[in-house]
Write a protein that binds this DNA or RNA. Structure first.
Lengths: 163, 163
DNA sequence: CACTAAATTGGAATGATTCCAAAAATCAAT
DNA sequence: ATTGATTTTTGGAATCATTCCAATTTAGTG
């Protein structure tokens, strides 16, 4: 699972960092490679765990910092669902997310370019969108083999469940 | 500022609660009326503060419970932005949200019905969306007097409902 | 190599939200 | 109405993802 960053990805990262006046560091590169190497939607903690495999000295605070940086540089998307820690995925062009209520899985939904353009057109004159987030919740087809897990929330509500 | 719930709204609330097997309580009605009475996007804390004006005995935990209940009943939308407490707004049909990065204000963006229909069409076959969330982040026009959230220590004043 | 600004680090602090167990309120059936 | 079963409310404690902090290390520049 120790996947290095491709030359292309590495350059893309360095460029994006430079563009934002940020430095290229071992940790940033490594966190990015962790995300690129396993394309699901891990939490910061999970990224931390994965990152430590090849870089045991990295700290949780740094993982948070790096993730934040990557999001700022628009190399990574952050998704947050209620009651759950943020999840991160490398930004592979415009896509939405679909959370399957039954399985807790998250699916990437590719968005046609034309639709992305249309999305910003619903804004009244004068609004300038820097980021757009589209997310669905509902039922995904049972047989879909796509990835990712958002653990099902089995926490009982305040009131005890019947029986 | 003490706005009662209209008969229509009250019935709608009671029906929605009944439909979900939940009881109609003073607190739930009051929290709902607080949200309906000032159409911005308050946090739970802000709702708590407003609710206490007319019902000083209500607790923060209850406000959280009520808000959760209202969201479940689909009478209220919950918006959550990174690094910020959830915000709530009464659910007035399909609309997106726009967060102005500079002022922190949230604007409701009306969505044409045709667009709402199109949104669900980006889903691959087999995906059934129960909820869709569209949210923008960026710069809003400075002069827009549209719906905003109220800064914590401002004197409560009448806000004209949007749309 | 030396300097300066930026980044990393571990641990402590934060704060929105949830949990808990007791008290109160609601609803249904007497 | 009264009772009884169930839900809801409540205050305070607990949780836990995330941020903050001050000290150390590192990257980039000349």
């Amino acid at each position: 699972m120790v996947s290095k960053l491709s030359q292309v990805d590495k350059r893309e990262l360095e460029e994006a960092l430079a563009q934002n006046g940020l430095r290229a560091t071992r940790q940033r590169e490594h966190v990015y490679s962790v995300l690129m190497g396993q394309r699901d939607h891990p939490t910061a903690d999970e990224v931390y765990a994965r990152a430590k495999e090849a870089m045991p000295s990295i700290s949780l605070a740094t993982v948070y910092n790096c993730l934040e940086t990557l999001v700022e540089c628009d190399l990574v998307k952050r998704l947050s669902y209620e009651r759950e820690p943020s999840r991160f995925c490398p930004n592979d062009g415009d896509h939405a997310h679909f959370l399957d209520e039954q399985s807790g899985r998250v699916f990437d939904i590719v968005l046609p370019e034309s639709f992305v353009r249309e999305m910003t057109q619903v804004l009244p004159h004068g609004f300038e969108a820097k980021k757009v987030k589209l997310s669905f919740t509902g039922y995904a087809p049972k047989d879909k083999a796509v990835e990712t897990r958002v653990p099902q929330d089995s926490t009982p509500k305040q009131t005890a469940p019947t029986q």
